[in-house]
Nucleic acid binder design. Structure first.
Lengths: 348, 348
DNA sequence: CTGTTAGCGCATTCAA
DNA sequence: TTGAATGCGCTAACAG
């Protein structure tokens, strides 16, 4: 516990210099003679010295770290976002204070925020799916602190920094594609209704089908929970409500997988009897049976962008500036595979 | 940048007490009168004070944090391990210093280790797939520091703490199951050969087929890279080498998905013409076509166990004890679905 | 129950 | 190019 407390002073004594000189070597300052520099470095090596970050941060008055509050690693999008965040944080030589939450429990959030503030993080990235119910509560919390906050995949407001994917566009792309393929009654299986992503993808779908003159839209909507079983159940529910459905936009690939299985059970061939488009383009989607048409987003890029944003804000503030809130938006693309190609379908 | 530097002293003055008393309140010490405690707490609230963790850690001589070096979040097992780690770290009120690596680049590892030591982490969890090539290098590194290290999913040695899943048993379960189903020529698609998991699963398979009197074993082995495309390619390679193959143990579910697609292209029905067993039991496996028989592991538990181990070691050392290295092993189970049930197969 | 004194290990002034 | 003093914010060890 206590035998390895080599401090900067120990090194200094061993090297026959002052602590400050060692400090200079440590921080690659120019004002040290090459000779002493080398000698000190050698001693550092020998003694296995490593600077105490707490002391350093305390003294410097900086933490050089960014706090991230994220929602699980189980889902595709969120986990890729995190990969992007981690990578960029590393690249910019920040360090990461990571907090994962499963649910929005205010007391838990409070606790995490307290921790983050204690660590003096220089920015906070909020990568939890927007739960409208709590957004005011959260905004209020954040308004009390001076630490900059960047939201990921949240509805735009004019007082926040947001990095988001254009989920509505994704919904439009998916639905319009199905329509272009000649499908006439296009339903949707959404994610949990409280997610912002869910609302946006639904809005995209709604716009396209409304423009096409659909009526009784509500019976074409069913809610899932992002997981395969709910996709399976969802498709069955849809057909029970409206047997004329001939296509479905499923709001993520896992649920699309479930829907595919259900469609098999219902004796519907994909893409002949039923067109399907998913969302996310998980690596497995190309190997589904049949290969799944889906919407590809760039969640990794979004994570990286969020970190860059924070970094820029921090820098700006150091020069006294106060950056204006802004929205960064990334655009999804359509990846066409078999599950939606009515004419070329290979499965009978 | 500087207007919100509320310190413990500011609070103390505002409350008309000494800094020490505020510190006591902060740390829930019993030796404060209820009256002053409440008063101080109120002031803390009002001033929006939060203790500086760097100062606290510096003073206490403890970091209360655990360093984790992990391999990506993209793969199922590793990401779940991480979930387990994070959860348990939180539960034990430690904080997490996370480092993700994509490759084993010694200089990068060096850098990370340096960081971790600077943060004075109380333990290190090494959750990177064992690359034998570097294991000596790494052992040498770790031998120089006094911080306890726990390895995840690494071959046992008698000088290390290891938490691992019994991958060999998994391989045996999968292969024996196929054999029991009446398949006669069981091949294997492995992961990258340098992974410890790969070697173990392969060893399990090898033991079972050898016991069954297989000859020319090598032509039944093909190496993949954990991803679906390599599973697809792998199956084709196998059949090119030996057309009599009637079953394959695929070392993870993603590759199994690829193999399923290839089998369709080859005109082989699953499970009649070809039995398949995967590994991992990812949530989607039950929705593959056909549903995939697979090996379920408990990666989350493994992560949690590793943290508990670290915590126990730290505690033990505080009392002067020096815990003996040990291996914790978790057992996988077989999950039988359609892809391996020759007699009851539903797909023609 | 409360206050005083003295560091924790480092970096930032200044001098020299 | 180097060293000496000083303080970062907090807690531990004593007093009282």
């Amino acid at each position: 516990m206590s035998e390895e407390k080599v401090t900067i002073l120990d090194v200094a004594q061993a090297a026959g210099v002052s602590a400050q000189t060692v400090s200079r070597v440590l921080n690659d300052r120019p004002d040290v003679s090459m000779e002493t520099r080398l000698r000190v470095q050698k001693i550092i090596e020998q003694m296995g010295y490593s600077p105490n970050l707490f002391a350093r941060n305390l003294s410097r008055g900086r933490s050089n770290s960014i706090g991230v509050i994220a929602y699980g690693l189980s889902y595709f999008g969120p986990s890729r976002v995190l990969i992007g965040i981690e990578g960029k944080i590393n690249e910019l030589n920040f360090s990461l204070a990571l907090n994962l939450i499963d649910d929005f429990i205010p007391s838990q959030i409070d606790h995490i925020l307290y921790e983050l503030l204690s660590r003096r993080v220089e920015g906070i990235i909020w990568a939890v799916p927007a739960i409208e119910q709590y957004s005011d509560w959260l905004a209020e919390k954040f308004s009390k602190i001076q630490t900059p906050v960047v939201y990921i995949n949240k509805g735009p407001t004019d007082s926040d920094f947001v990095v988001a994917m254009d989920n509505k566009l994704g919904g439009k792309l998916a639905t319009a594609h199905l329509m272009a393929q000649g499908y006439r009654r296009i339903a949707i299986i959404t994610g949990p209704s409280r997610w912002w992503e869910t609302q946006e993808r639904l809005a995209g779908w709604r716009e396209v089908v409304t423009d096409a003159g659909y009526v009784n839209i509500d019976e074409l909507i069913v809610e899932g929970d992002w997981n395969a079983p709910s996709g399976s159940a969802g498709l069955k529910t849809l057909f029970a409500k409206d047997p004329d459905i001939d296509a479905v936009f499923v709001s993520n690939d896992q649920m699309a997988l479930g829907a595919m299985q259900a469609s098999r059970e219902l004796g519907k061939s994909i893409p002949q009897d039923l067109g399907i488009v998913g969302f996310d383009d998980i690596p497995e989607a190309a190997y589904f049976y049949p290969p799944l048409t889906t919407i590809r987003q760039g969640p990794k890029v979004i994570g990286a962008l969020a970190v860059e944003r924070i970094s820029a804000i921090v820098e700006a503030r150091q020069t006294g500036a106060n950056p204006e809130p802004e929205i960064l938006c990334s655009h999804p693309t359509l990846v066409v595979r078999v599950s939606s190609k009515r004419d070329e379908g290979i499965i009978g």
